[in-house]
C-alpha cells in the first residue's frame, strides 16, 4: 500500500499586509513522509513552525510551493493544490486533526460534538452516539457533562472532547497538535494507549507533544523542524 502521507518541497511565508507587507517566512523546503502504523513527532523550539506544518497538511493554511500528497481512497491527492470540496472529502474520510483548542459551536452537546465525524460518514446516529459515549467514558469525562455544550468546560475537559472527536473515526492519518497539554497524568496515559491502539491499526500519525513522558511513550521517530527553518536557509 502506498505511503499515507508524503510532504515534498513545501515552503510557506506570511505576508502581513497590515504591517506594511512585511514577509514572515515560516518554513522552507519541507520534505518528509509518514508511514502507516508509525507516530512521527515534530520537534524543535517554540515558534519554529510545527503547528503551521500540521495546519498546512490539513489544508487550514495555504502553501507557497510544494506538494502535500495524501493517499485518499487509493488515489493520491495533493492537498496543496486541491479544491475545497476535495479537501473536505479528505478530512471527512482520511485525515483527522486534533487541535489544541476546541472551537465550540453553541448548543451542541459534547456527545454530539464527538459523534459528528461518524455521522458525517453516514454512520447511524444512535450507533455513533454509543461510540462517542464509550470514548468519553474512557477519557474520564464526567457523565453529567456529556449532554452539555462544551463552551463552559475547563481546558482539560474541552481537550478530552477534542481528542474523543479526533480518535472516534477510522481515519488513516491523524494529526495531533498538543493533544495532552491540559490533561492530568491519568488521562495522558489513556491517550498514550489510544495512540498505541491506532498505531496497531496501521494509522499514520504526526504529532506535536511538549510533554516528555508522552513523547517517550508514543514516538517512533522525532522530526526536527529546525531543519526546515528559513532562518537556517538564510544563514546558509
Amino acid at each position: 500500500m502506498a505511503t499515507p502521507l508524503v510532504v515534498s518541497e513545501v515552503s510557506k511565508s506570511f505576508i502581513m499586509h497590515l504591517r506594511d507587507g512585511i514577509k514572515l517566512p515560516v518554513v522552507n523546503d519541507v520534505n518528509f513522509s509518514v508511514a502507516g502504523g508509525e507516530c512521527v513527532v515534530l520537534g524543535g523550539p517554540s515558534g519554529i513552525g510545527k503547528s503551521s506544518i500540521l495546519k498546512m497538511l490539513y489544508g487550514n493554511y495555504a502553501v507557497d510551493a510544494g506538494q502535500i500528497l495524501v493517499n485518499h481512497r487509493e488515489k493520491i491527492v495533493d492537498i496543496a493544490a486541491a479544491d475545497p470540496r476535495t479537501i473536505i472529502e479528505v478530512r471527512r474520510h482520511t485525515m483527522g486533526y486534533v487541535s489544541q483548542f476546541l472551537r465550540t459551536v453553541p448548543r451542541v452537546a459534547a456527545v454530539d460534538v464527538v459523534a459528528e465525524p461518524l455521522v458525517a460518514r453516514g454512520i447511524d446516529a444512535a450507533e455513533a452516539k454509543d461510540r462517542a459515549v464509550e470514548l468519553l467514558a474512557r477519557l474520564n469525562l464526567p457523565r453529567e457533562l456529556w449532554s452539555l455544550p462544551p463552551a463552559t468546560f475547563s481546558g482539560g475537559e474541552q481537550q478530552r472532547v477534542n481528542i474523543a472527536r479526533g480518535f472516534i473515526t477510522s481515519h488513516r492519518i491523524l494529526l495531533l497538535d498538543e493533544p495532552t497539554a491540559s490533561l492530568d497524568a491519568t488521562n495522558r496515559r489513556v491517550v498514550n494507549e489510544m495512540i498505541a491502539a491506532k498505531k496497531a491499526e496501521g494509522v499514520a500519525m504526526l504529532g506535536i507533544f511538549h510533554d516528555e513522558e508522552v513523547r517517550e511513550a508514543v514516538a517512533d521517530r522525532i522530526l526536527d523542524v529546525s531543519a526546515f527553518s528559513p532562518r537556517k536557509a538564510v544563514a546558509a
Binding site: I15, M16, H17, L18, G21, N60, A62, P84, I87
Partner: peptide, 15 residues
C-alpha cells in the same frame, strides 16, 4: 476553503 481563508488570509482586504 472557509477555514483557510479565515485562518490564513492572503489578500490585504481579507486580512
Amino acid at each position: 476553503l472557509t477555514d483557510r481563508v479565515l485562518d490564513d488570509p492572503r489578500e490585504p482586504y481579507t486580512q
